[in-house]
Design a protein around this nucleic acid. Structure first.
Lengths: 138, 138
DNA sequence: GTAACTGCAAAATATTTGCATCCTT
DNA sequence: AAGGATGCAAATATTTTGCAGTTAC
């Protein structure tokens, strides 16, 4: 597990630092999407706000995490699966936001359905965000 | 047309003010989603930032406009169709974001497809956001 | 006349940038 | 040693709140 995390950084040609390892571990341990604020709390404020901003941005750029568009517009981040690579995300899965607990899940096993778009438009990527109640809050 | 706009406000039991009429007119004239910044620009800075914040919030609360979750997390707003009412949105249409010109469209005629969500989860609302190239940028 | 709306000032938050220092390689 | 990463300070930008003056009804 520890090994996996460092591998992720190596593959993206990023220096292996405590900071990055800790943030990555937060994502792995939580199995849900995290906001900047979540990371700040979960980390116990051990590192700087600015570092979190920069680290998240770096991870997004490298395709390690992806952002999730949410209705209330808090930016959420979650780990990308193997299909993602630098500059080219394939987050073709559905995101689920629980209205009760606020947790955002990546439903990796749920494929996004095909969408018919009008003539003249060409689709490149599709995001699906489902709101509702999650299994824990039921 | 002018009449329509005042009717919208009347139906929501809101006072009819220049400010609100102008902002509503911006939405009607542009046929696309607008951000807070867009409105500031389009209005020619004739009214206060704060007023725009409050007006947009009021409109969202009353079901006159809805927010659109976007990948880059700028908050976009667009007019709701007749199905929306206070506190209960039915934005069951697809949103399209053009990667070239940045325009966000409501594809009112495109219904959102059914999504299979896992056991234990119950869906309440589904948002679909498609990225690509729009008819004008092709 | 009264309640609602607006604009200004200011506070509170959030995000970005510059730079000196420290850490990874 | 060199380049990248971090932390601090500070600059910007964004959003919220309070309040007094104005406007719609």
């Amino acid at each position: 597990m520890e090994q996996e995390i460092t591998d992720i950084l190596k593959q993206s040609q990023l220096s292996i630092t405590d900071n990055r390892l800790k943030i990555l571990k937060l994502f792995q341990n939580n199995d849900k999407a995290l906001s900047h604020a979540d990371i700040e709390k979960l980390s116990g404020k051990h590192f700087d706000r600015v570092t979190i901003y920069r680290t998240l941005q770096t991870f997004v750029d490298k395709g390690i995490i992806h952002t999730i568009p949410t209705a209330d517009n808090s930016i959420m981040y979650a780990l990308c699966k193997e299909a993602c690579s630098e500059g080219h995300h394939h987050d073709d899965h559905v995101h689920f936001l629980c209205d009760k607990c606020g947790t955002t899940y990546c439903l990796d096993n749920v494929n996004i359905p095909a969408v018919n778009i009008p003539k003249g438009f060409s689709a490149h990527q599709t995001n699906v965000l489902v709101n509702g109640v999650c299994k824990n809050c039921k």
